[in-house]
Simulated scan of single mutants.
Amino acid sequence: MKGTRDQVDVGNVLEALNVISKGRMVMDWNEVTSGTNPYVVTKTSNIPGKSVIEIPGLIFGDKRKPVSRIGVGMTLTESVIELASAMKLDLIIVHHPVADAASSGGVPFADYLPLYNLSLIEMHEAFHGLHPGLTLLHGHTKLKTDIAFGGIPGNVLHKGVALPEVHTAGDVLARIDRFMGREIDQDMLEAERAIRGESTLEEATISNPAKLLSGTPESSVKHILHFFPHTGFSMKHLETALQMYPETDTIIVSISRVREDHEFVELAKRRGLNFIVGNSHSVEIMENGLPLAYALEMLLPQVEVFLLRERITAVSLKEVGHSQMVKYGRDMAEMHLISKPTQAVQIL
């Protein structure tokens, strides 16, 4: 591969990603317009103007541009762009599809990314199903995978069997906590609460632990269906899958989650099945991002690769701890956002 020479460019990175994805990347823009690449798909909720076309390939930048520092992330945001700028990265590779303004602080890529000399590649559907990591983290070996269950691109269903060391639902939950290092995130959150003086501070990873919604920790686990509710997986899909695999005793959902009263859980309870909600979307950077980053490092050893992990927190407005910014926020709200308009403004 060309990337073995001393100087790596964006084109070499794209070639490496094509090796990793088993030939799924868009290497020629004609694949987008011709419909020949099955991983170029449109995602839409039928809200006018809000659909997006996923294009696993180079979205912004020049293939000939030299690359020495790459950031691998899940979702492009203005925070990711600003971090990449501060770190003087040459290229950002994200898992999820990107869109002008929505992924770049409300402005077009063409006005923002050139400021920091950043190129941009996305992957998403082209990366799905390439490794068994998500299933192994959740305690099973996948026997079959359908990445378009029910004919819906990205609607992934894994049929798996429990690992030899996994016997019960409690084993699955303990395995997830151990692998994901939840105690580290919990310690960080407690320290931040103390430092900021914000006792109600919450963090996305800690707020969404793995849970058992049907069954008991002692319930046996052997035959597993594992899917991701946010991909369009419906009740009809679940019923079909259970008909296909009647031996199923455990349902695992991860990345996205359902609540205790969801119809999936009610079905599991009626049929005496275990129902486990596993890792949330906030840790997919570790589940999918980390393997991708290491694969790039192995194929392109001359390039330095960084993992771009966003950490999302929330705090009650009554507890925001930085007094100077509290005063600023209150002043702006009172003097400019809720005050009565002047006569001049009324005339306008």
Results as ranks from 00 to 15, higher is better:
R182P: 02
R182L: 11
R182E: 10
R182C: 05
E183F: 11
E183A: 04
I184F: 13
D185F: 10
Q186H: 10
Q186C: 03
D187T: 10
D187F: 06
L189G: 01
L189H: 03
E192H: 04
R193I: 05
R193E: 03
A194E: 11
A194S: 15
I195A: 15
R196H: 09
R196S: 12
R196C: 06
R196Y: 04
R196V: 05
G197E: 01
G197K: 07
G197I: 03
E198D: 06
E198R: 05
T200Q: 10
T200E: 11
L201V: 02
E202W: 11
E202V: 09
E203F: 12
E203A: 00
E203R: 00
A204D: 07
T205V: 07
T205G: 03
I206W: 06
N208V: 03
P209N: 13
A210R: 14
A210V: 08
K211I: 01
L212N: 05
L212A: 07
L212R: 11
L212S: 08
G215R: 01
T216V: 13
T216S: 11
P217Y: 07
P217C: 14
E218A: 15
E218N: 12
S219I: 14
S220L: 14
S220W: 05
V221A: 12
V221P: 07
K222F: 15
K222D: 15
H223N: 12
L225A: 15
L225Y: 06
L225N: 12
L225P: 15
H226S: 08
H226T: 13
F227L: 10
F227D: 09
F227S: 14
F228R: 04
P229R: 13
P229F: 15
H230P: 05
H230Q: 14
T231M: 04
T231N: 14
T231Y: 01
G232A: 07
G232W: 03
G232K: 02
F233A: 06
F233L: 07
F233T: 00
F233P: 02
S234F: 05
S234Q: 08
S234N: 07
M235H: 11
K236N: 03
L238E: 00
E239L: 15
T240N: 08
A241E: 03
Q243V: 02
Q243F: 04
Q243T: 03
Q243Y: 08
M244T: 02
Y245W: 06
Y245S: 00
P246Y: 09
E247M: 00
